[in-house]
Design a protein around this nucleic acid. Structure first.
Lengths: 139, 139
DNA sequence: CTTCCAAATTAGAATCCTTACGATTTAACA
DNA sequence: TGTTAAATCGTAAGGATTCTAATTTGGAAG
């Protein structure tokens, strides 16, 4: 199940004309394996074990590439960008995010569908609904 | 109406044992007058006209103080902290935020009250619901 | 299996936002 | 007024992120 996503993601690189490098594959494996929000620094630290002398730039550039390819999703927690493998549930949803471990739990209630305000005249480009706290495992 | 809030905010400084300095008063007047989300840099620029040689430290320290006094509220937009006078409507609400001018419009629908997920076992410490876009005036 | 080129990576500097520091000034009270 | 703790200044430090120029490499073409 998850491996399908991983393979799909790696395949997407070729499809879109990006090179399949060992670093990119390891980054994607990392996100697939952890299945939680991670910072660029965390990714760098884990990758550095295998790839010594890894550059900041590589991490940030690839994270940005993956987000634009819709392989990763991004959110900002306490001033730091966090990334996770995009959920494959196939429908729009939101997240409870554990502030300790970064793991998430899907929330299927979307406030936009239940919105009873009149926002005509407003051009809406996006919305964010996140619930923060501590997951059962971290308590 | 808004002046009441401003006076209350200035008065709160004394009540809580903080000094009422000209810089703090001008900062609060600024937020009262603009009534929108502003960055520390925007505040610094406007204040610098009157107070030349104003220090970063003063801006950030006072912004932080005002937030802790519940005079200002804070959110993070594209990697930068934004602050605005806390709304006085007296009840919990959320915001549409114009990404051009920073002005907001209150949203009274709260997703937490309509949440039909079972989150027992999760320790919830907070939530965020924001709608982004362009307000009528900025289109 | 080579050659080749655009893409990827590196190392390090630069940028942006934010916070921290010791020295100086100032608000508020007696 | 004088005193004192709080506020401010000037600047440096910090962390996250982006940029640049030089080098390396994936992978398509021969």
């Amino acid at each position: 199940m998850k491996d399908v996503n991983l393979e799909e993601a790696i395949g997407l690189l070729k499809t879109e004309g990006y090179k399949q490098t060992g670093k990119r594959k390891m980054m994607l494996e990392l996100f697939d394996r952890h299945d939680r929000y991670m910072t660029a620094k965390e990714v760098l630290e884990e990758m550095s074990r295998e790839f010594k002398g890894l550059s900041f730039d590589t991490i940030y550039r690839n994270l940005s590439t993956f987000v634009s390819l819709n392989i990763l999703e991004e959110t900002e927690l306490s001033g730091e960008k966090h990334f996770r493998f995009v959920c494959d549930s196939g429908h729009h949803h939101h997240h409870f995010i554990c502030l300790d471990c970064g793991k998430t739990r899907q929330i299927h209630t979307c406030p936009m569908s239940a919105l009873n305000e009149n926002l005509s005249g407003y051009d809406i480009s996006g919305h964010k609904f996140e619930i923060y706290g501590t997951c059962p495992a971290c308590q």
